[in-house]
């Protein structure tokens, strides 16, 4: 799979504790795995299995309590919050279940937002945002606000936002959770295309088997541990 040989994501014995009123809740109890550049991975598991916590860690939104996490060879667990922010900005794109667009901003401004934090000038980021919207097929809706767009369109704006800074990895957390099946198929088809044609590494969190079937590797979590890690035959359309 990976031509470089070195994994893009490598976690070793990762643990995450959350303090609760009753003591410490162990969300992750020693997870080790690696993901190579260009992989399309589905992470599955029941709620409370630790899959969301794992994705937050991989997405550099959080740091592990114990264990190490190397992203592209760099030790993320030792980074400052500013360094993590820069990673999220340049290396990582997020797509959420609830889209998480800023409702008062137009599609274009939403997509341009990560470019602003990348320090890009106003005109340059508008140009790049427009180009990214064109890529997801929403170039003509760039001046609509999220409320003027359908759910599928909103999710495509969100994908465009994730793609805007040309990241190497996209994390999608239940990206089809709020969409009907037809729209879900379109969105997943688009993800597959991104992975296939542009080599973007995709990590997808879902509890739906048919959505997970778009991926080529399935990792299943249960009680904070990986209980299954298998390759999926390229069967799904």
């Amino acid at each position: 799979m990976a031509e470089s040989g070195k994994p893009l994501i490598e976690v070793v014995d990762i643990e995450k504790d959350y303090p609760t009123g009753a003591g410490v809740f162990q969300a992750l109890r020693g997870v080790s795995l690696s993901i190579a550049a260009g992989e399309f991975v589905a992470i599955m598991g029941a709620s409370g299995s630790g899959k969301s916590t794992f994705m937050n860690l991989l997405g550099c939104l959080d740091r592990p309590t114990r264990g190490s996490y190397h992203l592209d060879g760099k030790d993320v667990s030792r980074m400052t919050s500013d360094q993590l922010a820069a990673l999220r900005n340049r290396e990582i794109g997020f797509v959420f279940q609830g889209f998480n667009l800023l409702p008062k901003l137009t599609a274009l401004d939403n997509v341009a937002l990560p470019l602003m934090y990348a320090g890009m000038g106003r005109e340059a980021r508008r140009r790049q945002a427009q180009a990214t919207l064109d890529r997801v097929g929403l170039g003509e809706r760039s001046h609509h606000t999220p409320l003027q767009l359908s759910g599928g369109q909103q999710q495509r704006v969100a994908i465009a936002r994730a793609l805007a800074t040309r990241p190497r990895i996209i994390f999608a957390d239940e990206p089809t959770g709020n969409l009907d099946s037809e729209t879900s198929r379109q969105v997943m088809g688009f993800f597959s295309q991104l992975n296939r044609e542009e080599g973007i590494t995709l990590v997808l969190v879902t509890h739906e088997a048919d959505i997970a079937a778009y991926a080529r590797r399935r990792i299943r979590f249960q009680d904070g541990r990986v209980v299954e890690d298998v390759a999926i035959e390229a069967a799904a359309a």
């Binding site: 500013d82 820069a86 999220r88 900005n89 990560p114 934090y117 990348a118 936002r161």
Partner: peptide, 12 residues
């Protein structure tokens, strides 16, 4: 939260 997720630093 959204702004932070897409790369806003604390100081931003």
């Amino acid at each position: 939260g959204i702004r932070m997720a897409i790369g806003a630093r604390r100081r931003d």
